[in-house]
């Protein structure tokens, strides 16, 4: 069909009709989410007058960043063909470890922060190692970690702190500097923004660069798209998968640190349920649940949609329970769209 033995083509190829900017955009994985985000923004802009004010937008962005940071890792992992049900709980595990290490051992909070990082990465390593070693589906492996972590969070907190929450650590050495990194607020034109927003942008930018411009990105797409083929051409499939699980753990740890340093104490029962938000953000953002396709920007837009909806429903004076219904409807819509997009991508031209 396209194989001929003719002369080399001139610069550019006459068989390639110039694509308009619009049709090129329509081929991107995140386009569905972008359209959804615009529609939802307009909806709440119209029905909820308080939604139009700058502080509300700041709150929306803050809320979005809390979903968005772990969702970056979850999106990368999903492109790599796996998913992580333990992500939501791992966030809280990280804050609990940091908080209790610093409080119980009476050491600088940075020691707690680092111990927590090591523990978080170990959880990711365990997830990844079990997966590549046993070849079980990630659903089973991470479901197991999810329950184990949920139990550990509650039981160990009760055992060590004697309650369901950790002790306030705000007067321990190093708290101020840690708070400056993980949880400070700053003013832009009279609007108070949280630093997580900046971190979120940084993580999305790094993930996008890795995916599109580095060999690692190539490998991530390959292990998700066809791992046997990837292995056959020399891609270290197991290392890539383990690395992706550890990336998710790192970003969960980061979010956990934010929660710890903005509230000073942590409720040990929090977290379960959030893993689905991260996964749905990635799927709504155009990542294929089966792997091999998607983008970090898409997951960011997905998280932004949730941030907007969660705040918008409240600001519009509706019952907050509608949020859950909306989550489900959005997921269904996005999945159907994904099927369509994938078919298009496979039969383009």
């Amino acid at each position: 069909m396209t194989a001929t033995l003719t002369a080399p083509p001139a610069r550019g190829d006459e068989r390639l009709a110039r694509q308009s900017a619009f049709s090129r955009l329509a081929g991107r994985p995140e386009i569905g989410a972008l359209v959804g985000a615009v529609v939802i923004f307009i909806l709440f802009f119209v029905v909820a007058p308080p939604f139009r004010e700058a502080p509300s937008i700041a709150t929306v962005l803050y809320q979005s960043s809390l979903y968005g940071i772990p969702a970056v890792g979850v999106a990368l992992l999903m492109i790599g063909g796996e998913f992580d049900l333990s992500a939501g709980v791992a966030v809280i595990s990280s804050s609990l470890v940091a908080s209790m290490t610093a409080y119980q051992l009476s050491v600088n909070v940075w020691v707690g922060v680092l111990v927590s990082l090591v523990v978080a990465l170990a959880i990711g390593l365990l997830n990844g190692y079990l997966l590549v070693r046993t070849k079980l589906p990630s659903f089973l492996v991470t479901l197991a970690t999810f329950f184990m972590l949920t139990g550990l969070n509650l039981a160990l907190t009760k055992l060590i702190s004697g309650g369901v929450a950790t002790k306030d650590i705000s007067d321990i050495d190093g708290f101020a500097s840690a708070q400056a990194i993980f949880a400070q607020s700053f003013d832009v034109g009279g609007v108070s923004l949280r630093i997580t927003l900046l971190w979120w942008i940084v993580f999305v930018a790094i993930a996008t660069w890795v995916l599109l411009k580095t060999h690692l990105g190539n490998w991530i797409f390959a292990v998700g798209g066809a791992d046997a083929s990837a292995r056959a051409v020399g891609v270290p499939v197991k290392k890539v998968k383990i690395g992706l699980f550890m990336t998710v753990s790192f970003l969960c740890w980061f979010t956990g640190m934010h929660i710890l340093f903005s509230f000073n104490t942590v409720q040990s029962g929090q977290g379960p349920g959030n893993e689905f938000l991260y996964i749905i953000a990635a799927v709504v953002g155009g990542c294929l649940l089966t792997g091999g396709y998607g983008s970090a920007v898409g997951a960011a837009i997905g998280a932004f949609i949730f941030g907007m909806t969660e705040q918008g429903i409240v600001l519009a004076g509706w019952e907050a329970d509608w949020f859950k219904f909306f989550l489900g409807a959005m997921l269904l819509g996005a999945t159907l769209l994904n099927v369509y997009v994938r078919r298009r991508a496979e039969t383009r031209k």
Partner: peptide, 29 residues
Amino acid sequence: VYQDLAVVPLMPVWRNFFLGQEKRKGLGM
């Protein structure tokens, strides 16, 4: 070259061509 294991279908041709042996340039490719 294995019968079924040759390529990753959803990836562009050039990415498939260099998969596993990407030409590096600085940190990227």
